[in-house]
């Protein structure tokens, strides 16, 4: 039962080992430098702070200290035992880039729904009209999706964009590459308006509060020596704030993995592959697993 699954998910602590064993981006480091953060992670209470020695720490449940990492300006925490570190973002080692957190925003949606929306180009002319798309340029051209080293990648994604980035001065046919290195995080690379040979990187790193509530951290690493931090942030903030009401009105909030649950079109190839990949990884938290979908 879809409705039941959503209602129950709100109160459920996560027992899904695949998701428990991930590193989750739980805070912008600047956020906890300003003071202790009390929040949730996968339905459990979570406390994050900077200790007197300057180290970031976190405790889950009543008071169980858990492992953390500090990468790319965020605090990453886990409730389980990850097999390695946080996925690599090589762009952060290129020192001519501007790397920052554009926004941390609460959204009443499951993590997989947010990732799937991030991968979708077809909504650009409607939700981000005049910025990332514009009618009548609504067609999503054929693109390819493949799995590489346990990650999903989508190539050859081309889309007409009136204003592709903060530094844009004219409409372009923007080229996108998508990367899904983590069940609850995704990156996109798009042609840089300031350097045609390189790509801007934008990431959505999700902090799953519960199965149906998240905080989305919007990571950016761009080639832009003109715009101030505030202008780079302003552009990306405007984009995600337009997505928020769309995401919050999706039903069910959990992402159905059964192939028959929602009707896809050709443009949804990346969504289809993403759902299949979550099924294969055995993810059960934040989704309606395929087997359950068949029963409903």
């Amino acid at each position: 039962m879809t409705v039941m699954a959503t209602a129950e998910a709100e109160t459920q602590v996560c027992t899904d080992p695949v998701i428990r064993n991930q590193w989750h981006a739980v805070a912008d480091l600047d956020e906890i430098r300003r003071g202790e953060l009390r929040t949730l992670l996968l339905g459990e209470p979570l406390r994050c702070w900077i200790d007197s020695g300057g180290a970031a720490r976190a405790a889950a449940g009543p008071d169980r200290e858990i492992e953390v990492r500090t990468d790319y300006g965020y605090l990453w925490a886990t409730l389980g035992k990850p097999s390695g570190g946080v996925f690599d973002v090589p762009e952060t080692r290129e020192h001519d880039r501007r790397t920052l957190n554009a926004l941390t925003v609460g959204i009443e949606v499951s993590a997989p729904r947010a990732v799937e929306n991030f991968l979708d180009m077809a909504h650009f002319p409607y939700v981000h009209a005049g910025v990332l798309g514009e009618e009548p340029h609504t067609e999503v051209a054929e693109y390819r999706v493949e799995e590489r080293d346990g990650e999903l990648w989508a190539f050859d994604c081309l889309f007409y964009q009136p204003r592709a980035a903060a530094a844009s001065s004219q409409a372009v046919l923007a080229e996108y590459v998508y990367r899904v290195p983590h069940p609850y995080s995704a990156m996109l690379y798009k042609s840089s308006p300031t350097d045609a040979s390189r790509m801007d990187a934008i990431g959505i790193f999700i902090h799953p509060l519960t199965a149906t509530r998240i905080r989305a951290h919007l990571f950016i690493s761009v080639l832009d020596d003109v715009s101030a931090d505030r202008e780079i942030r302003r552009f990306q903030q405007g984009v995600i704030a337009q997505d928020k009401p769309i995401l919050e009105n999706q039903h069910p909030k959990l992402l159905p993995l059964d192939p028959r649950a929602e009707t896809p079109i050709r443009a949804d190839r990346s969504a289809i592959v993403y759902r299949r990949w979550l099924s294969r990884l055995g993810v059960t938290y934040g989704v309606i697993p395929a087997a359950e979908g068949v029963r409903t």
Partner: peptide, 10 residues
């Protein structure tokens, strides 16, 4: 004049 209200707390 954009003010970086969040997360910049400008």
């Amino acid at each position: 004049v954009p003010v970086d209200f969040y997360p910049g707390w400008e």
